[in-house]
Amino acid sequence: MGVSGCGKSTVGQALASELDVPYIEGDLFHPDANVAKMSAGMPLNDDDRAGWLLALQAQIRAARQDDAGLVLSCSALKRRYRDLLRQGDPALRFAHLAGAKELISARMQARVNHYMPPSLLDSQFRDLEPLQDDEAGVTLDIGIAPELLVAQILGEVQRQA
């Protein structure tokens, strides 16, 4: 979880590979209307995100029902979004990829063919509610290499097992 440009896809894919479980890119579940809105530089609101979050919750629930592992990347910016996702699997854990706005902005400006413009980063930081003490998960500093972030997540998973 984290704001756009923090490395969710890169870390998520690498983590899924290490765990030998499926990876789901949450952005692929946004309806066309959401993509168009973000592409136009307009931030999503809670109503825009509702159906998207329910679709992700269904993916989480299906993995839980199949007793299968899963790594899913999505912003999950607000506590209530994470609570909704946890309804798919109460044992769901989050890795919050956190970092300085300047670093993330530079990453967003460097990427190509992505619908999320850097101009929406401020709105993402405004909406961001970091993991709370009672939420299962870990907050990680994206200033380190993705493979080290994966190692930290794996260490956390082993500690919580």
Rank of each mutant, 00 (worst) to 15 (best):
G2D: 03
G2M: 03
G2Q: 02
S4F: 09
S9C: 06
T10H: 04
G12T: 03
G12S: 10
Q13I: 06
Q13V: 13
Q13C: 08
Q13F: 01
A14D: 07
L15I: 05
L15Y: 08
A16V: 08
S17E: 14
E18F: 10
L19W: 03
D20L: 07
P22W: 01
Y23S: 08
Y23N: 05
I24D: 08
D27L: 07
D27K: 01
H30Q: 10
A33L: 06
K37S: 03
M38F: 00
M38C: 01
M38E: 00
A40V: 00
M42Q: 15
M42G: 06
P43S: 05
L44D: 00
N45F: 10
D47G: 12
D47T: 15
D47M: 13
D48Y: 02
R49E: 07
G51C: 04
G51S: 03
G51Q: 05
L53F: 06
L53M: 02
A55K: 15
Q57R: 14
A58F: 10
A58P: 11
I60C: 07
I60A: 06
I60Y: 10
R61N: 13
R64G: 06
R64W: 10
R64V: 07
R64M: 09
D66K: 15
A68V: 11
L72I: 14
L72E: 05
C74N: 07
L77M: 13
L77I: 04
L77A: 11
K78N: 04
K78V: 02
K78S: 04
R79W: 04
Y81G: 02
D83I: 05
L84C: 11
R86S: 09
Q87N: 09
D89E: 11
P90V: 13
A91V: 03
L92H: 01
F94Y: 00
L97E: 04
A98Y: 06
K101C: 10
K101T: 07
I104P: 01
S105C: 13
R107H: 02
R107W: 12
A110S: 11
R111P: 01
R111H: 06
H114R: 09
Y115Q: 02
M116R: 00
P117Y: 09
P117R: 03
P117G: 07
P118A: 09
S119R: 02
S119M: 05
S123N: 06
Q124L: 02
Q124Y: 02
R126M: 15
R126A: 15
D127V: 15
D127L: 14
D127A: 15
L128K: 02
L128S: 06
E129G: 06
E129S: 09
P130G: 04
P130W: 01
L131R: 10
L131Y: 12
D133Y: 10
D134I: 03
D134L: 03
E135R: 03
V138L: 11
T139K: 09
L140M: 08
L140R: 04
G143S: 01
G143L: 11
A145Y: 10
L148T: 14
L149R: 01
A151Q: 12
A151H: 13
A151L: 08
Q152R: 15
Q152H: 08
Q152M: 05
I153H: 08
E156R: 15
E156K: 13
V157F: 14
Q158A: 13
Q158K: 10
R159D: 12
Q160N: 12
A161H: 15
A161W: 14
